[in-house]
Each structure stands twice: as C-alpha cells, then as structure tokens.
Simulated scan of single mutants.
Amino acid sequence: MSGYNTKQRRALLAFLGEHPDELLTARQMADALAEKQISLSAVYRNLAQLEAEEKVRRSAKSGSHEAFYQYLDAKGCKGALHMSCVKCGKTFHMADSNAALFAKHLAQSEQFTLDAADTILYGTCSDCKGK
C-alpha cells in the first residue's frame, strides 16, 4: 500500500532518490525541502509510511540519539549490504562478491544467516581513515 501520492510524498521520494547512499535525519530532509514548503511533521509522517512499506530503513549511529533514514527503493540498493562511515556519514554498497563471501562465512563458521537487505556495517571509509 503506497498511501496517498501527495505533493509532500513526491518531493520526499525525489529527494531520497537523489541521496540513496546517505543516512539522513528527518531534520536534514525537512531543511533540504523547506523551500518546497514541506514541514518536519510532513517528513516524519511520510517517513513512517515509507518505513512501513520497506522503502526506507531507520537506524541509529553510535553516539547519536537521532534516527537516521536511508532510501532502499533506489536501483542498486535493494538487497545490498551497506557500509557506513562513522566520521563522514557516507554509505557505500559492499561489492556483491564480497557480500556473498561474508554471508557464506557467517553461515558456515557462525551458523548465522545474514539479512543483507537489513544490515549496515559501521566503520571508517578510506577518505576519512587518514584524517
């Protein structure tokens, strides 16, 4: 069920589609969409519906009390194992072959089945490592 296709929903989906590899707060989205007259409450309302539809994922970052959201309905994001930099916040897709090896290793050595579509690995990206 996609709910109502309101102006706010279309604007939020367009914005999320332009930022599929980022973890963003509702406030960041509302600030970016302010010129389109979309309120913070409208962003939260739409994010709740999109989360129920499994089009966005809500997560938390270590050391933060805020919820972060990532758009999952973009091409290339579905089923991808994500890695997020704790310094700059950029999110990357793990190469499919590496994700498959990682999942296989977990299954064999830990008897654990990884749900790649619902997993984010946190660490430091190569750009931030030297900073």
Rank of each mutant, 00 (worst) to 15 (best):
S84V: 07
L121D: 07
G79H: 04
E66M: 04
L13W: 05
D115C: 03
E66A: 08
Y122F: 15
F102L: 15
Q108G: 11
S62P: 00
A14R: 06
F68W: 04
G3C: 05
Y44N: 09
Q108H: 14
K90H: 13
I120C: 15
Y122N: 10
A34Y: 05
G123A: 09
A117M: 12
Y44P: 00
E35A: 08
L40Y: 15
A100C: 11
A52G: 02
Y71S: 00
Q70V: 08
L106F: 14
Q49R: 09
L101Q: 15
S59D: 01
K90S: 10
A100T: 14
K55T: 02
K36V: 03
L47G: 09
L121P: 00
C128S: 11
L121R: 05
L16R: 03
M1W: 09
A117T: 11
A67K: 04
L101V: 12
S97H: 15
H93G: 10
L114A: 04
L33Q: 06
R45H: 11
K87S: 11
Y122C: 09
L12P: 06
G130F: 14
K129Q: 13
M83G: 14
A103L: 05
T119P: 02
A116H: 07
K131E: 15
H93P: 04
F102R: 12
L114E: 12
A26Q: 12
E18G: 03
L47P: 00
Q37G: 13
V86W: 08
P20K: 01
Q28E: 15
L106W: 14
R58I: 01
I38C: 07
I38H: 08
A67V: 02
Y44W: 10
L81Q: 01
K90E: 15
G63E: 05
K61N: 01
R57Y: 04
V56Q: 06
A80Q: 01
G17A: 03
L106M: 13
Q70N: 01
Y71R: 02
D118F: 07
F68R: 01
Y44C: 06
R58F: 01
E110W: 13
L40P: 06
C88Y: 03
F112A: 13
Q111K: 13
A14Y: 07
A11Y: 07
C77Y: 05
E18W: 04
H93F: 10
G89Y: 05
Y69T: 00
K129I: 10
Y71F: 10
A34E: 12
L50A: 10
A26Y: 12
S59W: 01
S41L: 12
